[in-house]
């Protein structure tokens, strides 16, 4: 399994043709305490860069963009009752959705973990 990152701080963990999507620890920390997560419907189709979910902290709402195009196959319903999981475990239990990747070539434009770390250090 490989994990890729976007410049907007989403991550996608790829297992076969399915990707699990969440937001990075850097993003979770920057947002502060997450109080609400709005998830898409299972079956929704997104292009790369489409707004896929919304994450709200005490102060503001932020969009979560789909790192690649594809169809949503599952969402993390546990976040509806426990949105704070995004802060507690951004790269684990705080995942947002699973997507069936339409075109694996789109992954090549994303950053690997080392590149993403360098990217964050420069922010």
């Amino acid at each position: 399994m490989s994990t890729y990152f976007t410049e907007d701080h989403e991550w996608i963990k790829v297992d076969g043709d399915t990707g699990t999507v969440g937001i990075s620890g850097y993003a979770a920390k920057a947002l502060g305490d997450v109080v609400f997560v709005e998830l898409p419907e299972v079956g929704a189709e997104f292009d790369k860069g489409d707004e896929a979910a919304v994450v709200e902290s005490v102060k503001a709402a932020s969009e979560v963009y789909s790192p690649v195009g594809g169809e949503v196959t599952a969402v993390n319903e546990a976040l509806e009752e426990a949105p704070e999981t995004v802060n507690a475990s951004p790269d684990g239990d705080g995942w947002f959705l699973k997507i069936k990747i339409a075109d694996a070539d789109e992954l090549s434009s994303l950053m690997d973990e080392a590149k993403y770390k360098t990217y964050c250090d420069g922010l």
Partner: peptide, 12 residues
């Protein structure tokens, strides 16, 4: 200062 390391929720 908009928040300290404690964070908005805990500060509140």
């Amino acid at each position: 200062p908009v928040q300290y390391p404690m964070g908005v929720l805990k500060e509140h």
